[in-house]
Each structure stands twice: as structure tokens, then as C-alpha cells.
């Protein structure tokens, strides 16, 4: 197990370097001069431009800039945004909000998605099963921003159950509706995936054995069926936490939540290179770590899998 983790950690290094380098090159080598943009409408003074370029290290070759950035990362230094604020500060403001939002969406997704999946799997072919199947299909095909607007229109403007925009980004009650919107797509996937594996496992031999030896129904479904059915679901959920945090761009925009998505969106629009690179670096790390955790969870859930 320890050796496996070590090997996986080593494999993550080239992927991490590659992904950050890719985003770094895209942000800094594409046309558009962020320093000149700082001057806005006024004519830029060449001497000041030079000084600023030097201050942000933009006069060095790209690969040197990247090297400086990566070595800075290990000291916990994410660099400075063009407005002079440390990127780490910006992220310290934005991440708590988005982590709350993503975890809330994640919780909703697990509770409702898995429940729906298990119930429909056990009631295969019944009316409820058909209904949920059609419903999840519709949800998967509606783009997130449309779901967001429909939610705002129906619940916020027409029936006035929720506030159309979030006033306090740290208030869990206000984050509930955005979290539903953010998690809707994954919720549909989770329930379909759970349903498929439950239906498959219902036919397994060990289910018949459990039934034959007279175990109560609650134990058969709760322990025997669930533990085996949840393996593929856990895989999906693991990689999904990262997706939720990255996918918050649209949801946070619609509900005006001051989180990572909004910060990232503004940074991309204003060519705030350091901020974009910083946030994407953290998102990539979340993605890599969660996929490692998923692989390790396999061994916990499925005793047949052993990592040497």
C-alpha cells in the first residue's frame, strides 16, 4: 500500500508540472499586454511600463518565469496580482466560499442521488423508476446556466421562496439554491449510475446466498448490496468534487456569489495572469489529490483489490 501511494505520488509530479506549464504558457504567451492594460485609456509611459514589467518579472523568458513561479509555490508564494495584492490573499477570500458551496452541492448530490438510485434500482420498471429516469435525462441535457435562470425565475422572482441573488456568500441557507443548481447535473449522473449498479448486483450470487440464509432485508440491501454497488459511484464522486469547484464559474455568476468562480472569471476577463494561474494550480491539485483518494478508497470498499 505504502509503495503504491509513493508510486502514484511520483506519477502525479509530471502531470502537475505539465498542466500548470500549459495554463502558464496559455496565459502569458497569448497576445494582449496586461501591463499596458493597467493604464486604461491613457497613453502608457514607456519607462513605467518597463519598470512594471521588471517588477512582475515579465521581461524574463517565459520558461524562467515559470521556474520562478514553481519554486515560489514551494515556499507558499503564489505571486502578486497586477493590482498589487498577493494572489494567496485573493484565494484566501474566495476559496472558503466555494468550498462551502461545493461541499453543500456534494452533500445534496450524494444524499439525493444515491437514494434515488437505490430506490429506482429496487423498483425497476415501476412508474417511479420511469419518472426518475426521464427526469434525470432532462436535467442532463439542460445547460447549467439555463437551470440557474429557471431556478432564479421560478423560485426567486415568481414564488419568492429564495433570494434571487446571494447577499451574504457565507450564509449556508442562501447557498442552498445555488448548490442545488451546481450539483443538479452530477446528481442526475449519480442516480443513474447507482441505479445501474444496483440492478446489476441484485442478480449477483451473493445476494441470493444472503437471502437464502435468512438475513433481514435491511441488512441485505444496506450492507451486501450497497457496499458492492457503491464502488463505481465513489469513483465518480471522487473526481466530481474538483469538477464542482471548477464548474462554479457559471453558478457563482448567476447568483452573484463572491467565490473562486467569480474571481477566476473576472481575472480571465481582465487578463490577470497571476490570479488565473494561481487558482487553476489549486484546482489541478484538488483534482489530482481526489483521484488518488478515489483509487485508495477502492481497496477499502472492495476487498478483492489489493495494492502491492
Amino acid at each position: 500500500m505504502g509503495r503504491y501511494v509513493a508510486r502514484r505520488l511520483l506519477q502525479m509530479i509530471p502531470v502537475f508540472i505539465g498542466t500548470t506549464l500549459l495554463i502558464f504558457l496559455m496565459v502569458y504567451s497569448l497576445p494582449g499586454d496586461p501591463v499596458k492594460a493597467l493604464f486604461g485609456q491613457r497613453a502608457s509611459d514607456p519607462a513605467t511600463v518597463e519598470r512594471l514589467r521588471h517588477q512582475f518579472g515579465l521581461d524574463k523568458p517565459l520558461l524562467t518565469q515559470y521556474w520562478d513561479y514553481i519554486t515560489g509555490l514551494f515556499r507558499g508564494d503564489f505571486g502578486q496580482s497586477f493590482t498589487g495584492r498577493p494572489v494567496a490573499d485573493l484565494m484566501a477570500d474566495a476559496f472558503p466560499v466555494t468550498i462551502r458551496l461545493a461541499l453543500l452541492a456534494f452533500g445534496i448530490e450524494i444524499v439525493i442521488g444515491v437514494t434515488l438510485g437505490v430506490v429506482t434500482g429496487l423498483m425497476r420498471g415501476k412508474f417511479l423508476d420511469r419518472f426518475v429516469l426521464v427526469f434525470t435525462l432532462i436535467v442532463t441535457s439542460i445547460p447549467v446556466f439555463v437551470i440557474g435562470f429557471v431556478t432564479v425565475f421560478l423560485f426567486g422572482l415568481k414564488w419568492k421562496v429564495i433570494t434571487p441573488t446571494v447577499q451574504d456568500s457565507m450564509d449556508i441557507a442562501q447557498l442552498f439554491a445555488p448548490a442545488m443548481v451546481l450539483g443538479a447535473l452530477s446528481l442526475a449522473y449519480v442516480s443513474r449510475l447507482t441505479r445501474t449498479t444496483v440492478v446489476e448486483n441484485l442478480r449477483a450470487d451473493y445476494m441470493r446466498t444472503a437471502l437464502a440464509k435468512g438475513l433481514p432485508r435491511r441488512r441485505i440491501i444496506g450492507v451486501h448490496l450497497m457496499r458492492n454497488s457503491l464502488i463505481p459511484v465513489v469513483t465518480f464522486l471522487g473526481t466530481d468534487l474538483g469538477t464542482l469547484m471548477g464548474g462554479a464559474i457559471v453558478t457563482e455568476g448567476i447568483f452573484n456569489i463572491q467565490g473562486v468562480g467569480n474571481t477566476l472569471f473576472r481575472a480571465i476577463q481582465t487578463s490577470e495572469g497571476p490570479t488565473v494561474v494561481g487558482i487553476v494550480t489549486v484546482l489541478v491539485l484538488v483534482y489530482l489529490v481526489s483521484s488518488l483518494v478515489v483509487d485508495l478508497l477502492y481497496a477499502v470498499l472492495d476487498p478483492r483489490i489489493r495494492y502491492a
Binding site: P14, V15, F16, G18, T19, L22, I23, M26, V27, L30, P31, G32, T243, G246, G247, I249, V250, L264, F265, I268, Q269, S271, V276, V280, L283, V284, Y287, L288
Partner: peptide, 24 residues
């Protein structure tokens, strides 16, 4: 395969946004 992994690390929407922002 590593190249594929690297590109997998960047979500479609995010990569598209960063790339498209460069085009006026």
C-alpha cells in the same frame, strides 16, 4: 498518455475561456 492526463487536468470550459480570451 501523460499528455492526455495533462489536458484532462484542465476542464473544458476553463481551458476554452482562457484560450478564447486571447482573441479579440
Amino acid at each position: 498518455s501523460r499528455l492526455t492526463d495533462i489536458f484532462f487536468g484542465i476542464p473544458l470550459l476553463l481551458g476554452g475561456m482562457v484560450l478564447l480570451q486571447a482573441f479579440t
